[in-house]
Structures are given as C-alpha cells and as structure tokens.
C-alpha cells in the first residue's frame, strides 16, 4: 500500500502509461505461438518417443504464463474465456471416460485400440485411443498449473484455494 502511494507520488502511473511494453507484448505473442506449437508437437510425439500429455500441458501453461507477464490477468481471461476449474473437470472426464468406453466393449479398463488411417499429407497416421486419454491429461495439467499460478498471483482469489488435486 505504502509502496504504491510512493510510486504514485513519483508519477509512476504516468510513466507506466507511457511505456506500454510494445516489445514485450509483441514478442510474447510470437513466442506464445512457438511454445504452443512446440507443446503440441511434444504431445503428439509422446507415444513412441519422449513427450506426452504432461510435458505438453506444462509447456502450454508456461506459454500462457508468458502472456500473463506481458498482459494482465483481465486480458488473459478475455483471451481464454474458460473457467480453469471447468477445464480441469473436462480433462478429467476425457481421461476417465475414454478408457471407460473401451470397457463397454468387454475389454479390461485402459485396453488400448490402435487404428492406422491414411491422411492426404501426413501419410499413414496411427490413431490411438491413448491419444484421447492424453488430451485429457494435457488439458488437466495445463488448467491445474494455470489455476495455481493465478491463485498465487492474485490476492482476492485466495479464498478458493483448491484445485491441485490431481494431474
């Protein structure tokens, strides 16, 4: 409180308005895209080579945190108009219900099914049920990380202090 008023006296608000961080904001946008692409790349390479939903999700969260540094929370909330808790629930749903659907076909829980299809550009692409499970993990991890970081960052959000229950 004290610090803020001191800064105000020094004309910080004026200074702050003037330096609107063009460089940071612009590079953040570009780097955000690069990181997100890399995270998707990591995610899809996950089945046979190192990578996967967890790392991908963490990277996606890191990308959004970079945007948080450049912009403020309000802008980010406008950019990603989803409630984090809702996203967590969605991710959990995917990662539980995909193995569950397979169970209906008489297989034990988590039995994977693979399907190889031909796509125009990519050639033969394996479609694996584990991918959908991993999408759930990706969403959950990204949303949980973001939830925690926003909780740590904002003060008034401290009253809802849960969310990190699993990943």
């Amino acid at each position: 409180m004290n610090l803020k008023s001191t800064l105000k006296k020094l004309g910080y608000a004026k200074v702050h308005k003037q330096m609107n961080d063009v460089f940071l904001k612009y590079t953040a946008k570009v780097v955000f895209l690069i990181i997100i692409t890399f995270s998707i790349n990591l995610f899809f390479s996950g089945h046979y080579t190192p990578g996967g939903g967890f790392v991908g999700g963490l990277l996606a969260a890191a990308a959004i945190v970079l945007l948080l540094l450049a912009y403020d929370l309000k802008t980010i909330n406008k950019m990603i108009p989803f409630d984090h808790k809702w996203l967590i629930a969605l991710g959990l749903t995917l990662s539980v219900f995909v193995p569950l659907v397979l169970m209906i076909f008489g297989q034990p829980f988590f039995t994977h099914q693979a399907l190889y299809i031909e796509l125009p550009i990519f050639g033969e692409v394996p479609i694996h049920t584990a991918v959908f499970f991993d999408v759930g993990v990706y969403i959950t991890v990204a949303a949980t990380t973001l939830l925690i970081i926003t909780l740590l960052a904002t003060e008034q959000a401290m009253s809802d202090s849960e969310g990190a229950d699993r990943s």
Binding site: T144, T145, I148, L152, S161, A164, D165, R166, S167
Partner: peptide
C-alpha cells in the same frame, strides 16, 4: 501437484 498445492 503436491508442491504447487502446498505453496498455495
């Protein structure tokens, strides 16, 4: 997950 929750 543990560390994150405990920081909060």
């Amino acid at each position: 997950a543990l560390t994150a929750y405990m920081l909060v």
